[in-house]
Design a protein around this nucleic acid. Structure first.
Lengths: 183, 183
DNA sequence: TCCGAATCTGACCGATCGGTCAAGTTCTGA
DNA sequence: TCAGAACTTGACCGATCGGTCAGATTCGGA
């Protein structure tokens, strides 16, 4: 487990999230990490593989809690929502990339995999995926949370995670469950 | 009012929104518009000026309804929210660029101007900007709506604007007003 | 100690980037 | 009709892009 490779993953994730994948050059990453560009390409043989390495921990965690959650109901759904919020908080940079740059990264395999997970989460929260309102509420909850957490990395006076977590659970829960009460 | 310049503005807005500003080259825009790259630079003397031209209609509209809205209260706020949703729907591509690419476009003047507007809208909806929950609810409403509308350009079976509009007004209103009821 | 693997680097490659320019074509009003 | 403005274009520029490669350096186990 080479320390340099981990550092490069970390730096790349930060730069991809803050400046965008296409706007971040391998030279940028090398400069921030304090190595040469050729050294970056020694550890990750292409820019796209570096993106995959930076995003895969978040994907793996998402897949894990999704596999555990099939067939849950009732209060278990609340527990699942809590786990989901924890994943969003821990991997906020990767989530931000998935949500805001997925259009710009259409032919990158790992991003397509992430989109498939998002689809599974939507189905889990909503039995009737054809209802426009349910789709909208889920989309707003997901995109809004990602936007919020992406900002939290840049804004300095942002609330602590201990404050964020319960509020996020409440607001998201409100958004994705109200619709099932009909109207 | 040359037709080519308008067409270039239109094409550039679409490509900047779908693929990202840095990932879109002047050659891309020229190809889609069916002209040469040199012709693009004749109408807009730099790529950044083309971005400004593509975004300024949305900025102008935002500024307009904001100037009319200073000092409103009560039911007028609902009317303001309706106007705001209309702007978001009409200029969804520009809004998507503001919200999702603002980090990648930090030193572009028009984007900084847009961020100032977003700040003014937040203050309008919330007297107490220091409350973490109010800030979060506004952020989720804004980022979530932008994410939703950005997707609406790509997904084919997306609800019509006539369906979207009342639902958006209801959901956003729910998000930005509930917090003032205390807890 | 020594050898091979792991790591790191500068030099270099073709391609594409945003942008310039001179020359050509089209349009328009007097 | 015709001059000048508006418009379009291909050729070209320096810079930077992602990526390759040979060689130097470092490191760990026998």
């Amino acid at each position: 487990m080479p320390a340099t490779a981990d550092e490069l993953r970390r730096v790349a994730l930060e730069l991809f999230a803050s400046s965008g994948y296409h706007a971040t050059s391998l030279q940028n990453i090398a400069d921030v990490a304090g190595v040469s560009k050729a050294s970056v390409l020694y550890h990750f043989s292409s820019k796209e593989l570096l993106l995959e390495a930076a995003l895969s921990p978040a994907i793996d965690r998402l897949g894990g809690i999704l596999d555990d959650a099939t067939g849950l109901a009732g209060d278990d759904r609340v527990r699942f929502l809590e786990q989901m919020v924890d994943v969003l908080l821990e991997h906020r940079l990767a989530v931000g990339i998935f949500v805001t740059q997925s259009a710009a990264l259409q032919d990158v395999p790992i991003v397509e995999r992430a989109n498939a997970f998002i689809q599974r989460i939507a189905v889990f929260f909503q039995a009737n995926v054809d209802s426009p309102e349910e789709k909208m509420r889920f989309g707003i909850a997901l995109g809004g949370t990602a936007y919020l957490l992406a900002q939290s990395a840049n804004v300095d006076d942002f609330p602590d995670d201990a404050v964020l977590r319960p509020l996020l659970i409440a607001i998201i829960g409100e958004l994705v469950t109200t619709s099932s009460r009909g109207h």
